[in-house]
C-alpha cells in the first residue's frame, strides 16, 4: 500500500521542530509499524538524508521503549498493544498517518520522535522499592501466605511497562496512572506495608516536582494503556496518600 506520512522532525532539544511529509509505498500488511519506519529510514539513508530517530528495542511489547503518538493516539489506533505490535494491516492504502513524539513538559524531546522519560525513573527512585537487603537472608518465600486475589491484583498493577502512554494520552500530562501502579503493587502485598507511608508521599512529591499535571479523572490513560492498567490504581493511591498525609 501507499501511505502519506507526516512526521515530526526536530534536530535536538534546543531546536524548533516541524512536521515533514514523507510519501511511502510498498508497505505490506504483515509489517509492523516500526518495520514500516525501517523501510522509510532505509530510503532516507539511500538518499543521503538523516533517518528518523525513534526509541525501540524489544519489539515484542514488553520493554516499554517504543512510544509514538500515531494519529493523535499513543501507540496508535489498536488497543492493548504497543507501537511495535501495531501492524500495517490496521491501515488502508492511501491513508495519511500523523506521527509525533509523546508530548509532555516532563518528557522533553531529544530528537525527532525520541523523548526523555528519565522523570519516570526519578519517581521510582523516590520510593518505588522495598528496603530489603539483597543478601538472600530473608524469610522463606512461603513464610507469609498472600491471598491469591491480592497477589493477582498486585501482578496486574506490576505489569506497567513505563512507556508513558498514560501521560501522552492525558490532557493534563498527568503521571498518576504510572505512579499509582507501583504504589498499588506494594500496597497490596504485606511486604510493602512497612514503608507505605513514606513511599506514597515521596513518590507523589517527586511526580509533582517533575512537572506532571494533575488528574481530572478523564480516564484517557486507562483507555490508551497498552497493558490495561486500571483506574482503580489511582483510586487506591489517593486513599494511600490521604491516610499517609494524616499520619505524616
Amino acid at each position: 500500500m501507499k501511505l502519506n506520512l507526516k512526521i515530526w522532525r526536530q534536530k535536538d532539544a534546543k531546536s524548533n521542530g516541524q512536521m515533514v511529509d514523507y510519501p511511502i509505498s510498498g508497505i505490506e500488511g504483515d509489517m509492523s509499524f516500526l518495520e514500516m519506519m525501517d523501510v522509510l529510514n532505509e530510503e532516507l539513508i539511500t538518499k543521503g538524508e538523516d533517518p528518523v530517530v525513534f526509541d525501540h528495542d524489544c519489539r515484542e511489547g514488553i520493554c516499554g521503549s517504543c512510544s509514538l503518538q500515531i494519529n493523535g493516539e499513543p501507540h496508535g489506533p489498536d488497543r492493548l498493544i504497543t507501537t511495535c505490535q501495531l501492524h500495517m494491516r490496521k491501515f488502508n492504502d492511501g491513508d495519511t498517518i500523523v506521527i509525533e513524539p509523546f508530548r509532555a513538559k516532563a518528557f522533553p524531546v531529544i530528537k525527532d520522535l525520541m523523548v526523555d522519560r528519565s522523570s519516570f525513573d526519578r519517581i521510582q527512585q523516590a520510593g518505588g522499592y522495598i528496603s530489603v537487603n539483597t543478601s538472600g537472608n530473608t524469610v522463606d518465600a512461603n513464610a507469609i501466605p498472600i491471598d491469591k486475589h491480592d497477589a493477582d491484583e498486585a501482578m496486574d498493577s506490576a505489569t506497567c511497562i513505563g512507556c508513558g502512554a498514560c501521560v501522552a494520552a492525558c490532557k493534563n500530562a498527568s503521571a498518576m496512572l504510572f505512579t499509582s501502579a507501583k504504589v498499588s503493587q506494594y500496597a497490596l502485598l504485606p511486604q510493602g506495608q512497612v514503608e507505605a507511608t513514606d513511599r506514597v508521599l515521596n513518590m507523589v512529591r517527586q511526580m509533582d516536582l517533575e512537572g506532571f499535571g494533575n488528574c481530572t479523572n478523564t480516564g484517557a490513560c486507562e483507555v490508551e494503556c497498552p497493558k490495561g492498567i486500571s483506574l482503580e490504581n489511582i483510586a487506591r493511591m489517593n486513599r494511600e496518600y490521604f491516610s499517609a498525609s494524616l499520619k505524616g
Binding site: 522495598i130 530489603v132 524469610v139 498472600i146 491469591k148 502485598l189
Partner: peptide, 17 residues
C-alpha cells in the same frame, strides 16, 4: 526468598503459597 521479599508478585495458589 529474595524476590518475594522485594515484592515480586509471583503466581500463588488459593492457599496463598
Amino acid at each position: 526468598d529474595q524476590c518475594v521479599a522485594q515484592g515480586v508478585p509471583f503466581a500463588r495458589e488459593y492457599g496463598g503459597l
